[in-house]
């Protein structure tokens, strides 16, 4: 909802500057994007159709993809075992176009809660879940998730029992991570489509829990 803010030139209530949008004055960086894109097309590196197709492919990657993977893992123990053994192969088995993604799936249980971060940049399983949320890329999340994960989780409304072990995963290199959240109670007998609707983006990063039915 980029137009909901009261003052285009100002700072939001949370102290963060608004992002330039299509109808605001053209910025230096937008001019650079147009120029780079046109030069790449003129030199035969890419085409407008290829760029449009790439945007469509990224737009088609959403947390709903991951939710389907999680729901299948909840209902199909053999699939869950394959997902934990080789996350990328399991996603390809479900016909998701994940490109070169090397995916590691980590499982939340009664005793373990997993949390994903990238302290060095903002690595994210984008070829499955789409682009990361803004907060995932912030200094605050990147700095604190490895040192005080429980305090960070409380800011997301997740309070963990003291006996639950937190496992933080810093995506420092070639792997990307997805959390298989614990299946909520009261979901016995639900089919995988209904279950997938309970799986939120944040529950697959570890900053949230699935919805309860």
């Amino acid at each position: 909802m980029p137009h909901d803010h009261p003052d285009h030139a100002g700072i939001s209530a949370s102290g963060h500057p608004f992002r330039p949008d299509n109808d605001t004055p053209l910025t230096y960086w937008q001019r650079m994007e147009v120029a780079v894109r046109e030069l790449l097309i003129e030199k035969g590196v890419t085409t407008p159709a290829e760029i449009a197709a790439q945007i469509d492919a990224m737009d088609a990657r959403t947390p709903a993809n991951g939710a389907r993977v999680v729901a299948r893992a909840w209902t199909d123990p053999a699939f869950k075992a394959r997902l934990l053994a080789d996350g990328s192969a399991a996603c390809r088995e479900m016909d998701f176009d994940i490109g070169a993604l090397n995916l590691v799936a980590v499982e939340n249980t009664d005793d373990v809660h997993n949390l994903i971060v990238c302290t060095l940049c903002s690595c994210y399983p984008r070829n499955l879940l789409g682009l990361p949320p803004d907060w995932y890329k912030t200094r605050e999340y990147r700095s604190r998730a490895v040192r005080e994960p429980r305090a960070v989780l409380r800011e997301f409304g997740v309070e963990l029992p003291a006996q639950t072990r937190v496992r933080v995963h810093d995506s420092t290199a070639d792997m990307r991570y997805i959390v298989i959240p614990a299946r909520p109670p009261g979901t016995e007998g639900m089919d995988s489509t209904s279950l997938a609707a309970l799986v939120t983006r944040d529950s697959m990063i570890g900053t949230g829990l699935p919805r309860c039915p």
Partner: peptide, 20 residues
Amino acid sequence: DMGGQTAGPVPLDEHDHALW
């Protein structure tokens, strides 16, 4: 290389990506 540095609350506001 930000891991472990002191920082404030995580800002939870999000924005939709513009075409550019």
